[in-house]
């Protein structure tokens, strides 16, 4: 299933923040159909894009050894619709982590305009909860990260480029 709601990572600093781009295109069915006559990226999918950036930020902090799922949307304020032709710049900052989960604060900008502010909480699935085993087929997450330019921009906690992960 196609479920990419970030086009590419533009910056990734382990344990700190991630930035990414989302282009809003008319050829996406959901953009066309969400509000007929007024094509826009549904706000829920902006949250999903933030969750993808934020989930990876949290998961990477734990070397991709945790099964990270979006647990709560603490805040979601939208200041402007994301219209066709817009390029959204997402920024997600790691707020706090616990052995059971993590929180991030995030913003979406279109040009200089603040488009959305979103706070998210992620939880880690314990073994045997909902599903057993990894959430991704072997290698799938690595391929997704490659597609989204992650490895080209990411630096690890020590500032080194091209980090590697045993669990990917």
């Amino acid at each position: 299933m196609r479920w990419f709601w970030v086009d590419r990572f533009t910056e990734f600093v382990s344990g700190s923040h991630a930035r990414g781009l989302k282009n809003v295109c008319l050829d996406e069915e959901v953009v066309d159909r969400y509000c007929p006559g007024f094509p826009m990226l549904p706000p829920t999918l902006i949250i999903e894009g933030m969750a993808q950036l934020g989930g990876i930020l949290v998961a990477e902090h734990f070397q991709f050894n945790k099964r990270v799922v979006l647990a709560k949307v603490g805040k979601a304020q939208f200041h402007a619709p994301a219209r066709v032709g817009d390029q959204l710049c997402y920024e997600v900052r790691l707020d706090a982590v616990q052995p059971d989960g993590g929180t991030v604060t995030s913003t979406s900008h279109c040009g200089d305009q603040l488009q959305a502010e979103i706070d998210l909480m992620f939880a880690f699935l314990e073994e045997g909860h909902l599903v057993d085993g990894p959430l991704f087929e072997p290698g799938d997450l690595k391929v997704m990260l490659q597609i989204m330019n992650f490895f080209s921009v990411a630096v690890d906690a020590d500032g080194n480029r091209f980090p590697t992960y045993e669990n990917l």
């Binding site: 709560k72 603490g74 059971d100 939880a123």
Partner: peptide, 9 residues
């Protein structure tokens, strides 16, 4: 149950 994690944060 998930709220307790949120409360802790």
């Amino acid at each position: 149950s998930i709220d307790f994690l949120d409360i802790v944060f």
